[in-house]
Structures are given as C-alpha cells and as structure tokens.
C-alpha cells in the first residue's frame, strides 16, 4: 500500500499569508525613501484613531523616521468612543511619539447645524473629511507629511470615505489585507488591546466594520486574494467559499472601482493629462 500525499485544499480558504519581518523591512525602506530621499521631509503626521491600522502605521513610521519625528493626532468627535482615545494613548506611550488631541466637534457641528437631517453616513463622511483638514494643516505647520493608514481590504470593498481616508500622499498599508495588518501588528508589538478589539470606524455608537460589511475580514480577505488572481464567482464557490459571501464581496468590489481612481476628467485633446501626457509620480 503506497502512502498518498494529498494537496492541502483547506489552505485555499485561508487569508493570504505574510512574513511580517520581510514586510516590515520593506515598508521601513519605503517610508524612508518616499519621505526623506524623495521629498526631503523627515517628519510624519498620523491620525491615531485607536484602531490597529493607524497603530501599525505609527509603529512603522517610528521605526523608519525615529519616534521623535512622528506626530500623532487624536481627533475625537463628541460621539466618539472614549475607549478609542485610551487605546490610542497606549500607542503614544509605547512609542514615545509626539501626540496632540484636537476635537473636531466644533468644526463638524459648525457645518452640520445647517444640515440637521443629515443621516449617519453623511455625518460620518463630514467627520472623516474634517479629520483630513486637520492632518493636512498640521503637516503644513510641522513641515511633515500626512501618512495614510488605509488597508487593501477596505480599499477593495470601498469601505472608506473618498477623498478623506485615502488622501495622504504616502500609504504603507494599502497593499496589505486587514488580516495581514493584524499579523504585522503582532510582530511590531502593537498593544494587544488594539489587536483583539473589533475594528470600527467609530463614526456611530456600537459600529463595527464586520457588522457594516456583513462578512468577517478573514473570509473577505481569503475571497479577495483569489478574486484578484482572476477567479470568477463559480470558481470561488468550487474552491469552497460560501456563495453569499462571494456575491457580497464581488458586488462591493465591482461597485467601488471609482473610489480607487482620481476624478473622471473629460478627455478632449491629444494631450489629456494621464491619458496622453504621462509622467510618473516621482518625476
């Protein structure tokens, strides 16, 4: 009787793997090159939400630039969870980075008083965009660069405010799935409380990402990783994924391509920018 060695098909349903040591080494070099070498800017400004993405970003920036060159901003709205502030403080204390808390309630409500009927989604978007106003102004004041914290999962699912979370000119996490960011957080020593808690945009009370999305990050990442390789829905289902999950992920990705692009500009000439006139971002 010969032993039969079988392929491990269960691995297909796992979130994509990451070697956090390799990723960290590469991302540190990326941050140093993009900030110091290319732009001559040695300081980073980060909106520290108390969540794992901005915490990992702060850890990477502290390693790449030195803690003394990292400026964290907590920007709570009146309805923000106090636990978020406390979790952000854990990161500030652990890294010894600069930190400041600037509440956005006055700015947000200054506008929303004219729009009392705005629903939760609109209010959340106003908060997200207000936070970017603060970050960009602080970066001008400090001669620093705002660093983005958006991950690949939320970018693919369109789970972010367009021209808010995605606006910082440099983003180290944008090609990492959420589950990979968690692995990176464990490797970097991010406080456990931030890794264990349910991810939340904290725009509304008791809001969680996975509740909003209707799928866990682990399942979404496993599906997304293979969807990006070109497998169609039927192939994904044949690979063991739940048809409802596949449909949900596919719909979200397909309905949000526009969020991953610059604004659509009418092309009228043979010299249209980024259509005919093509220059790389670092030229």
């Amino acid at each position: 009787m010969l032993a039969v060695i079988r392929e491990n098909t269960a691995a297909l349903q796992q979130p994509p793997p990451i070697n956090p040591e390799v990723a960290t080494r590469w991302l540190e070099a990326f941050l140093r090159d993009e900030l110091i070498e290319r732009r001559g800017i040695g300081r980073a400004v980060i909106g520290l939400s108390g969540g794992v993405d901005s915490a990992v970003t702060a850890y990477l920036c502290a390693r790449a630039l030195g803690a003394e060159n990292v400026y964290a901003f907590r920007m709570p709205y009146k309805s923000s969870s106090p636990a978020s502030l406390a979790d952000a403080q854990l990161v500030i204390d652990a890294l010894g980075i600069h930190a400041r808390t600037i509440g956005i309630t006055g700015a947000v409500d200054g506008y929303l008083q004219f729009e009392p009927d705005a629903d939760a989604r609109r209010r959340g978007n106003v908060m997200a965009r207000t936070r970017m106003v603060v970050l960009f102004d602080q970066s001008a004041k400090l001669d620093a660069l705002p660093i983005g914290t958006g991950n690949k999962t939320e970018r693919l699912l369109g789970y972010f405010t367009w021209h808010a979370d995605d606006t910082p000119p440099v983003n180290p996490l944008g090609d990492l799935f959420k589950t990979q960011v968690w692995a990176l957080a464990r490797y970097l020593g991010v406080p456990q409380a931030l890794i264990d808690k349910a991810p939340s945009a904290d725009l509304e009370a008791d809001q969680t990402d996975e509740g909003d999305l209707g799928i866990t990050y682990a399942r979404a990442d496993a599906i997304l990783a293979q969807l990006l390789l070109g497998y169609n829905d039927q192939q994904l289902i044949e690979r063991g994924f739940d048809a409802r999950d596949v449909g949900l992920v596919r719909r979200r990705v397909d309905s949000t391509h526009w969020k991953r692009h610059l604004p659509t500009t009418a092309t009228l000439t043979n010299t249209a920018i980024n259509e005919f006139y093509l220059r790389p971002v670092d030229y």
Partner: peptide, 11 residues
C-alpha cells in the same frame, strides 16, 4: 520591482 511577502526571509 519587488513583490511577494509570503517568503521565508526575503521577497
């Protein structure tokens, strides 16, 4: 250009 973060010790 480097890619692939699942390797043992390098991209």
């Amino acid at each position: 250009p480097g890619r692939g973060i699942e390797g043992d010790s390098e991209l």
